[in-house]
C-alpha cells in the first residue's frame, strides 16, 4: 500500500467535513478528485449497525428457529453452536469489509467473506438430507435441501468473483473506484 494512496489506509481518509471549502478544493484533495470518504469513526459506527442487522439474519433467526424445533423434541439438522460460530464469522467479516471499503483490502476481504460463506454453505450441504424421527417414533422424515444450497453457493461464487475483480481493479488503478463508491 502506498502512503500517498487514500485507498491504501482508512486512517489516511479525510473527515466528512473537508478542511478546505468545497468551492475551492486543493487540486489533489479527494473532493477535487470527485470523492469524499466518510471518517473511520463514521464507518465503524455504520459497520456496527450493519453487524446488528446481519446478526439478526445470520445468527438470531436461525438460532431461534433451531431452538423452536429442538424445544419440541425434534432433532435439529445442525448444531446451534455451529450456526452461531459461522454466523458471527460472517457478520464480523462483513463489518470489517465495510469499514475497510476505501482501502485496497476491500477486494481481498470480499473474496474471503464470500469464501467463508461458500464454506458455510458447503458445510450445510454436507448435512443434507435432514433426517429425523418425530416424537413418538413411528414417523421418520428425510428432507433434502441440496438444490437450494447449491443455488446459494452460486451466489457466493458470484460474490467471490466480484471481490476478485475489485482486487484487480485496485491493483491496476488504486483510486479509480473511489469517486464511484464515495461520490461527493
Amino acid at each position: 500500500m502506498s502512503s500517498a494512496n487514500p485507498a491504501a489506509s482508512p486512517l489516511a481518509s479525510p473527515p466528512t467535513s473537508p478542511a478546505v471549502p468545497p468551492s475551492s478544493p486543493s487540486p489533489l484533495s479527494p473532493e477535487a478528485l470527485g470523492y469524499r470518504i466518510p471518517s473511520l469513526t463514521y464507518r465503524i459506527f455504520v459497520g456496527g449497525l450493519r453487524m446488528i442487522l446481519s446478526f439478526v439474519f445470520f445468527v438470531a433467526l436461525p438460532v431461534a428457529a433451531l431452538t423452536y424445533v429442538h424445544a419440541r423434541g425434534i432433532p435439529i439438522p445442525v448444531s446451534i453452536a455451529a450456526v452461531t460460530g459461522w454466523g458471527i464469522a460472517l457478520l464480523v467479516l462483513s463489518a470489517v469489509r465495510y469499514v475497510l471499503k476505501p482501502t485496497i483490502a476491500f477486494g481481498p476481504l470480499s473474496v474471503v467473506l464470500a469464501l467463508v460463506f461458500f464454506l458455510y454453505l458447503y458445510y450445510l450441504l454436507s448435512l443434507s438430507p435432514y433426517r429425523l424421527v418425530l416424537p413418538g417414533g413411528t414417523v421418520s422424515v428425510a428432507a433434502g435441501y441440496s438444490l437450494f444450497i447449491e443455488i446459494l453457493m452460486v451466489a457466493a461464487l458470484v460474490e467471490m468473483l466480484a471481490g476478485f475483480l475489485v482486487t484487480v481493479e485496485d491493483l491496476w488503478s488504486p483510486r479509480e473506484r473511489l469517486p464511484f463508491d464515495y461520490p461527493v
Partner: peptide, 26 residues
C-alpha cells in the same frame, strides 16, 4: 487536476458492481 464527476465507471468496476448486485439479488 479535476476528475469529471459524471464520467463512466471503468469496465472492471462496472462488472464487479453488477456481479455484487447479482449475488445480492440471488
Amino acid at each position: 487536476m479535476e476528475i469529471p464527476l459524471h464520467r463512466r465507471p471503468p469496465l472492471i468496476y462496472r462488472l464487479a458492481r453488477a456481479l455484487r448486485w447479482l449475488g445480492i439479488l440471488i
